[in-house]
Design a protein around this nucleic acid. Sequence first.
DNA 1: GTGGTCTAGACCACT
DNA 2: GTGGTCTAGACCACA
Lengths: 134, 134, 134, 134
Amino acid sequence: MFQVDMKSRKSIYEQVVDNVKELIVTGLLPAESKLPSVRELSRTLTVNPNTIQKAYRELEHQGFIYTVNGRGSFVKEREEMRFDEKRIGEVSEDLKFAVRELMFMGVTSDEVKEKVDEVYGEGGEEVDHRKERE
Amino acid sequence: MFQVDMKSRKSIYEQVVDNVKELIVTGLLPAESKLPSVRELSRTLTVNPNTIQKAYRELEHQGFIYTVNGRGSFVKEREEMRFDEKRIGEVSEDLKFAVRELMFMGVTSDEVKEKVDEVYGEGGEEVDHRKERE
Amino acid sequence: MFQVDMKSRKSIYEQVVDNVKELIVTGLLPAESKLPSVRELSRTLTVNPNTIQKAYRELEHQGFIYTVNGRGSFVKEREEMRFDEKRIGEVSEDLKFAVRELMFMGVTSDEVKEKVDEVYGEGGEEVDHRKERE
Amino acid sequence: MFQVDMKSRKSIYEQVVDNVKELIVTGLLPAESKLPSVRELSRTLTVNPNTIQKAYRELEHQGFIYTVNGRGSFVKEREEMRFDEKRIGEVSEDLKFAVRELMFMGVTSDEVKEKVDEVYGEGGEEVDHRKERE
DNA sequence: GTGGTCTAGACCACT
DNA sequence: GTGGTCTAGACCACA
């Protein structure tokens, strides 16, 4: 479930951030579930606890998790993720950056939109919980 | 035509690389056209020549330009550039990662596609490379 | 009447301290009234008794309550509490610090004062202590 | 200009954050001015470079400064501080917390508002630059 | 047990 | 020179 690639160009803590984010966004880590403790994950991945803590703090900054001092870190409720215009702006920039590169490599606008639809297809059943329960 | 943003978190050499790529793909720098010399561009942008040197080496490495000792650097013929599927796959993953996060924050599929269109709008008339190749 | 937020970054014992203070200052816990016993409150809030113990000690230390062995803890007479100017000065500095940041972010003086009024609204009828002393 | 109190209950990095923030908000560190380098400030204050870096990163997260890799950290233009609702919400909570405590200690609403006005008085001439130039 | 902070010291990339 | 990352190991507060 958790993994880092020591050979990656991405820094370790960044990999952890993206890793956890992915798990949350795809629903594998549901709201209110407890993340592994800093020490535990650091043992699992055999990296320094400080590195994990840095990752967790970043996730907190980005609004994905919350941390309680003597108890651990937990996934935030989606409802409690305040609608964060700033963060949306940042991610939109990342998006555009990737789109530019794809355009650049000859990928058409329609092909990109197909990829977008794929994602909205994956998470489709997660988007509106009420639908599922009916 | 050439510009760098001193306030960006991106390193200067990376900005130069992206900048030149952009100019090539949009056709502003056509095949076989000569790039400014390292010294010249370093003066224009008021950055260290080493930085430009590094950017040109990277562009050569990525297959966009070629350098002839004593004469300068030139844009390759498009036929000689090949965009590998591997890179497209990697960037597609980046794209999906951003899309998932936007979806998670409540951005709709249509809004994402609007952003995609904005990028393809920037690029202008050069949107579909295949046309040219025909 | 008593409550703690398990998701808060504030430590539980700090929350209990603030909670009790609030009840005292708003008059919901009048002078000489008995506080719930450590064990009772720890059951009510489902937290460790040590945590409540610590909170009560802190409240005693700050001069809000007093404890009689074997009988329990009680709210002090207001005349016996004294709020030192030093503490008021410190909190005033915190206040100004926050106000400066809000000002910096473009929040107007009137908007800040609205927020102040909201707080004084919460407190209700107990707004002006001097009245009582007369 | 910069200082930390090793005896303070506040952590060192938090003191640095508040310290720098204060300098920025009061205009002593104008937009685009360069902050001392991580290493330099760490020598000045005789604390570990990591501690300073943590403080700087926090300031970046909060939108007060920006950092360029090989060049250093700089104060952001006020205009570039995107209107950050989330941050305003956080600081508003800090504000209310202080107000509650003041209310609690018998300070009247009007007295609090006086303090607010003091701050807006200090920074008054900074608020609208155009006024000054006329 | 948990997270939070701090130090000392190392290595890397970019300018 | 600059910041960015990482490690090892220590101490504290809180539950």
